[in-house]
Nucleic acid binder design. Structure first.
Lengths: 187, 187
DNA sequence: GCTGCTGATGTCAGTTGCTGTCATCACTCT
DNA sequence: AGAGTGATGACAGCAACTGACATCAGCAGC
């Protein structure tokens, strides 16, 4: 299992983020990223499905951890409570705040990267919905609970990466959940 | 303002949907669509920003109508009530159920089309959130109310296009809103 | 120490989405 | 009839992505 230089994937990820942040996503060519990482363009596409995916390498793990926490929620939990279990775990997986900030900035600057992020989040929502249904939650209930959880996650995450925010991610998640409850009480 | 044959845009939209539905999105080339519509590939890109956008031509109008309805909600409405006004209007704009069914099928079959749809929906959510903030609703409240509205919209729309569903779209929206309220009451 | 296997990488050719540029055409107005 | 205008065609070109095949490093067995 030898390689010429170890961790080609890690070098590609680092090179891509630097170039995207420094000169913009569209202005960066895959050949540039590969060159900076010391490999060829073809090798880039062996590690990542496309030019965007390089920014979303850790997303499977986030989903796995979220689902595990959701599955570990007490059997007596309501659907939205089980989702809250999962989301609190998801947000505590994100450790490096400065890295998240930089990555978010790059994504926010390019619609096609936003699309990919939205797809990942939709996948997380669908997976949570499926997990809820396996707990016996009806489909519509499961879907609305899961998507509400994703909204809470993103709103808390965005505030967590905002400048001047000192609260922990879990605190922000709880605040978003509380606000969601207040919002829907207005119906 | 003359043209060789009128409604090139309409012909391109029809040709694209047919080909996407019949042989798949990725198996269809832009040159094929253009040829079927009787124009060149270059003309396709004059009407649509990219190969995916041809399926999302009516989305701006949907957003405009939704925002207008939201703005017309009584001043005494809560944030989520104002959103409900907008969403009920949005769903009643979708007239042709069979067309929606076919289009949804094509989109569901291809992740890159799902990405584009998610981006459009996120845009609708952001616009509703901005409209709510102009009504004096605080940012976090506005965002959660708007995204909840989008979830209600998509869940109702998907059920509306499901086989064997006979209820009207507005009925389904109201049911989704009621279910959302029940779900968040579990917190 | 040599050999053969395995998996990662390089090389290359090709398709397709998409863009810039400029000529050309149909139509309108005077 | 002639000039102007806006849509279209023709063409060249770049970059993302893919398939096929050669090649190389390192390991196992002899």
């Amino acid at each position: 299992m030898g390689r010429w230089e170890p961790d080609a994937q890690g070098r590609l990820r680092g090179a891509a983020l630097e170039l995207y942040a420094h000169q913009g996503f569209e202005q960066t060519t895959v050949a540039e990223i590969a060159a900076r990482a010391g490999v060829t363009e073809r090798t880039f596409f062996r590690y990542f499905a496309d030019k965007r995916e390089v920014l979303f390498a850790g997303s499977e793990q986030l989903q796995v951890e979220t689902l595990a926490a959701l599955a570990a929620a007490p059997a007596s939990s309501s659907a939205i409570e089980a989702v809250a279990f999962g989301i609190e775990r998801a947000v505590s997986v994100l450790a490096d705040r400065e890295y998240s900030r930089q990555r978010s900035k790059v994504i926010a600057a390019n619609p096609s990267l936003q699309e990919r992020e939205l797809l990942k989040l939709a996948g997380l929502g669908a997976a949570m919905s499926a997990a809820l249904q396996q707990r016996g939650v009806p489909p519509l209930t499961a879907r609305l609970a899961a998507e509400a959880g994703v909204s809470v996650f993103t709103s808390a995450f965005d505030r967590w990466t905002a400048d001047g925010e000192s609260r922990t991610s879990v605190e922000l998640v709880r605040e978003s959940f509380a606000e969601l409850r207040t919002v829907t009480a207005g119906l």
